[in-house]
Nucleic acid binder design. Structure first.
Lengths: 151, 151
DNA sequence: AGTCATAGGTTCTAAATTGGAACTGAGTCA
DNA sequence: TGACTCAGTTCCAATTTAGAACCTATGACT
């Protein structure tokens, strides 16, 4: 049997598999998180995350190639760059918040969450829930049914 | 500077980091996906996913240790086990669906999605959106504000 | 001029993880 | 008996990650 390799994932029909092909490498999602939370420079990310510079360099390139980060110069002489999240990356924020809520319930810890998500208007903490746009009903493993797709 | 290792992640305060410590290894989320979609036996998962058996063995153990899978015997002589998702795993389904929707927009492909999420009542495809329970407003990178937490 | 510091990397080696294939063991079937 | 199923384990090679040092360009300091 021909085995599947990690590098074959981008060509999968399954969206979860394609998401993993971009964000499923070690550290990648944490780097994206930092850029989304406003940390955008190589050394700043490296200092906060404390991963090896080599890995950070590699992951930033891959996120750029996949259209999740944009390299923008912020000074000349010498030219230095910041890594800015694109719209695709910003659109991942709600997924990350849903993930955060999941971990707060199922992977609890004594340490406090380093970030809070606040509503821009009310300035109150937000409490995420996934709903179905069509019915307005909350999506849970009870409310939905997963079916093999035959198109 | 003391570098952080991948194995330090479970002790992080950040929920995204803790989620990655459990689901951020190669193949892990895809294995969980298969069990959630009803594929529960070692060989069945291996045949569908086509990963090496020893990786599958390793990941199943880790998912079990983290409380996402439960090993249940389904026959005697010889005793064989199925891997059943726990409530913690089932609660990840909405996150996965949000992720799927994200990838369909931002990592498009010609291949069709192998699975569909349907409403159990209406039998219609569901269309996920993350909202704030408090305000009912959709959570987007525009609607929220991320703030460092000082507790 | 020489030294330091800063930002953003690259290069090197060692350790760990993953890929690929074959093998084990308990039991079933022909 | 031999072939087959399921659920792994074992072995070695290939790839990735960890850790540290080094490089380049610029500016500031002495």
């Amino acid at each position: 049997m021909k085995l599947m390799k990690w590098t074959d994932l981008p060509n999968e029909g399954c969206s979860v598999a394609r998401t993993m092909s971009v964000l499923g490498d070690r550290w990648t999602l944490l780097i994206l998180r930092d850029t989304l939370f406003g940390i955008r420079r190589f050394d700043d990310i490296q200092k906060r995350l404390k991963i090896t510079r080599h890995l950070l360099s590699d992951r930033l390139k891959r996120l750029e190639n996949h259209g999740l980060l944009e390299r923008k110069p912020y000074q000349e002489r010498p030219t230095r760059y910041e890594y800015h999240p694109t719209q695709a990356a910003r659109d991942f924020v709600p997924v990350m918040q849903a993930m955060t809520a999941w971990a707060q319930t199922h992977l609890p810890t004594e340490k406090s969450e380093p970030y809070r998500f606040l509503d821009r208007e009310t300035r109150q903490p937000t409490d995420p829930k996934v709903i179905d746009v069509n019915t307005g009903v909350e999506i849970t493993s009870q409310s939905i049914w997963v079916e093999a797709n035959r198109d």
